[in-house]
């Protein structure tokens, strides 16, 4: 054994992925500016109508009436589409609950602890402190800040499993599935069963989403054996098994995911249960 106490027989940790370029999806950026845009439209529209009314009052009235009618009909139409959507795709209530929970979390996460962690980082920079900043930024969906600090944490001390795990979540959220899989692999390698199997589950999920269904099925099966599995892990396991043609075992996994439970599920688990129920209802089709 070497002098530093490390086990030379253990495989080396793969190099951590590079810092990702963070670019918010267009729809998300648009969604963030939507309230501001609505205020500006509400500001400008009456003034434009006023200017128009000076030239042609009847046209201004007609435009206002047409717009109001269109807005009312549009709202009713959207409600109708949403109702039909809920009929065609039954997990809509579960999705609404999940979205509401995410919204609540985004509002309910204060920036104070993040600012405090950033201030502490200025006094003394360490991997743990970078990790703390990155974790808090990730919770608040401040992805550029999270990317910078999580990458720095992994760079400074590649032996912290939590840093790899958080970095993996960030990469997965940014859509870099291959790199995320490497990060989760590192976390699992450093701390087997890290975060009660969450890293393993994420690893399986990334493998499935990246198109490696066989590896995903193996990883998720291991997760089921070692950690008992959850609604989410059984859902992904079912998808992976179905993709490699093991239809019966896929149905068994999905049935487990769709089973009702006595205790109240978290919004995320409830969402995967709803997806599994629909999958079974449709006979194993997407």
């Amino acid at each position: 054994m070497p002098a530093d106490g490390s086990d030379s027989s253990a495989p080396p940790i793969p190099a951590p992925p590079t810092e990702p370029a963070v670019k918010l999806p267009t729809w998300r950026a648009a969604l963030q500016t939507l309230p501001l845009a609505a205020i500006w439209i509400a500001t400008i529209a009456p003034l434009l109508l006023w200017l128009l009314a000076r030239q042609d009052p009847e046209l201004a009235v007609r435009i206002k009436q047409v717009t109001t009618t269109a807005a009312i009909r549009g709202g009713l139409g959207l409600a109708l589409v949403a109702s039909v959507g809920a009929l065609l795709f039954p997990p809509v209530p579960a999705w609404v609950r999940l979205m509401f929970e995410r919204l609540r979390l985004s509002f309910a996460s204060d920036r104070g602890p993040l600012l405090k962690a950033l201030a502490e980082l200025e006094h003394f920079a360490s991997a743990a402190r970078h990790l703390e900043v990155g974790r808090l930024a990730l919770t608040r969906s401040e992805l550029p800040l999270a990317a910078e600090h999580l990458h720095r944490a992994v760079e400074l001390d590649p032996s912290i499993a939590g840093a790899h795990h958080q970095f993996g979540i960030l990469l997965r959220r940014l859509g870099h599935l291959q790199q995320a899989a490497v990060a989760f692999q590192n976390a699992e390698h450093l701390d087997p069963g890290h975060a009660f199997g969450a890293a393993l589950l994420e690893l399986g999920r990334c493998a499935l989403l990246a198109g490696d269904e066989r590896a995903a099925a193996e990883i998720l099966e291991r997760h089921r054996k070692e950690h008992g599995g959850s609604k989410q892990s059984h859902y992904w396991l079912g998808k992976a098994r179905a993709a490699i043609g093991e239809h019966d075992s896929a149905i068994a996994a999905m049935k487990y995911a769709a089973e009702p439970t006595k205790q109240r599920l978290t919004p995320e688990e409830n969402w995967f249960r709803a997806l599994a129920r629909v999958w079974l209802w449709r006979g194993g089709r997407r």
Binding site: I39, W40, T43, I44, P46, W50, A53, P57, V61, I63
Partner: peptide, 26 residues
Amino acid sequence: YRIALTALFCSLCFVSLSPAARWDQL
């Protein structure tokens, strides 16, 4: 948001004082 809300307040004040596209005012 401060700038946008100030503009909205001024705009709506103006429209209250000089309503344009309300059939009843016309």
